[in-house]
Every structure is written in structure tokens, then in C-alpha cells.
Amino acid sequence: MSSVLACMDVFLRDGLMYSILALGFYISFSILDFADLSVEGTVLLGGVSYSLLVCKGVNPWLAVIVAFVLGSLAGCVTGLLHVKLKIRPLLCGILVSTALISVNLVLAVVGNGGSFNGEGALSTISFSRNDPTVLRTFPASLIPDKTGAFNLRELITFLVVALIFKWILDWYLKTKNGLLLRATGCNEQYVSMLAQNPGRSKITGLAISNGYAAVAGALIATSRANANQGMGIGMIVIGLASVIIGLSLFGKLRFLKPTTMVILGSIVYQACLAIATYLGVPSAYNKIIMAVLFTVALVFSNSIKKGASKA
């Protein structure tokens, strides 16, 4: 019984933490129809920058904001490559995430006391027991750390952060600028006819979505108590699968906002992974299961789309 609860604790935590990444993908993939691969780099950028600042004693909430800003800047680069140099979305993402491998490595090594050659120190940033992560700082520190099998403080903190970022996005999408972003995703020429630059709108969207990815990176680092250079791997599948599962599984429930569906999708996806682990599937097979689940979600959402167009 207690292992069931422990399993729940894991997937709720992971689901909430990755839901912010999924919200980012909701912007780039669902709204802008832009398959953004730069996220592998920006999640890590968020994790590394946040961890560095926390280890230097900076207020962790401020560090989350810095992570967001840095992620957004990386997203702007992706957008600029696409809009100004007319490079295809997939390639823009590959270019930016590749460049970020070096950036993140050097950033981490320098933060650990190494040189700007990227040598002379570890590339993984680990928190010590006293480092003030978001979980050890006001207001999260007021919440009891554990109740039974649940890491209550972590769950509540991640839930609140996820909800805050969901609400910000909900609010933004109802502003003039946000509505223009949604219009850009379905009809760029229409946006041009409104005398607005659709390129600018795209860059804005990619900046926000990569900012969200970086914030997810900060939470992942908090939860794992470190930021290592492999952290970004698999983030595209996690984010996209969460969005697609959320929108196809809950799409019929009209009272739910898409952003809520995406958060639920992220939790469902992590629950499936956790159940696989619970059933004894070795963790080495994790990525296969992720890919299979993603495939199922894609097929599922395709069949829903077909059904809808027939109706």
C-alpha cells in the first residue's frame, strides 16, 4: 500500500513539474504550430542558471525568474532564426539546442569554479543540504515537509507554481497581444492584414514557451537536487506527449480550459510511466515506454480529429 502512495507521490510531483514544460509546448506546438526542439537546451539552461544562482545564495524565486528570462532569450533566438533568416522550425530548434549545449556546459563549469574553457571543474551543479532552493525558502518552508508517504511540501509548491504559470498564460491569451498570438498560429496573412507583423508575434510566443521550459528546468533541478548536463534529454517527448494526451483525452470537456487539460495530460503521462515502473519494468526501458505512450497518444488524437471532421 505504501508503495502505491509513493508511486502516486512521484507521478504527481513529476506531472506538476513537467506541466510547466507542457504549457510551453502548448504555446509553441498547439497555438503556433511550431515544432520547437530548442526546448532540450532551454530546460537545461533553466536548470543550470537556477542552480548556480541558488548555490550562490540568491533568493530562489528570483532565480526562477532569471531562468525564465534566459529561457525566453533563447526562445527569441529560435524565433529570430526562423523569422529573419527563414530557417525551418525543426532546424532552428536543432541549431539553438546545439549551441546551448556549449553555453550550459561552460556556465556550469564556470559556476563550479572552473575556467571559461569549460575545464577545471564538474559540469554538474549539486545542491548542498543548506542551499536555499524554492522548497527551503519562504513561503514553501511553512508547509510541513512530509505527511506519510507524501512529500507534501514539494507537491504543494509545485502545484502552486504550475497554477501560477497556468493563470498567467490564461490571462495573457485573453489580452490583445495573446489573441494576436493565437491568430498568428492559424493564419499569418490575416495578422498581416491587421497591420501587425506576424513574425514579431511568433517570436513573442517562442520566447514565452521557452521561458516556461526553463522554469520547468528550475523545478526539475530543485526536485533532483542537482542540474546535470543530461537533464534536457527526452524533454521534447515529455512535453509534446503531455500536450497531446491532455488535449485529446480531455478535449471533450468544454468547461476545462486547454491549459488545464495540458496540466492534467502531463500528470496522466507521468502516471503511466510511474505505473510501468511500479509494475516492475526496469528503468532502462523508460524511454521505450515514453516513446510507445507518445505513439499511442498521437494515434489517439488523430482518430479523434478524424471523428470530429466526419461529424
Binding site: K174, T175, K176, C186, Y190, Q196
Partner: peptide
């Protein structure tokens, strides 16, 4: 001539704002 995923109201609200700025105010 319009954005498919937006409602009629949203499309008209966008067009109503043409030649003004699209800021962070309610659409």
C-alpha cells in the same frame, strides 16, 4: 480572411483594434 480557431467575437475584436497597438490589455 479570418482565424479559424478563434470565435467570431474574437476575430472581430482583433479587427476592431486594427491600427492600434496590441498590448497586454483585455482583448
Amino acid at each position: 480572411g479570418s482565424a479559424a480557431k478563434l470565435t467570431i467575437l474574437e476575430n472581430m475584436a482583433l479587427a476592431d483594434n486594427k491600427n492600434k497597438r496590441y498590448l497586454l490589455t483585455p482583448a
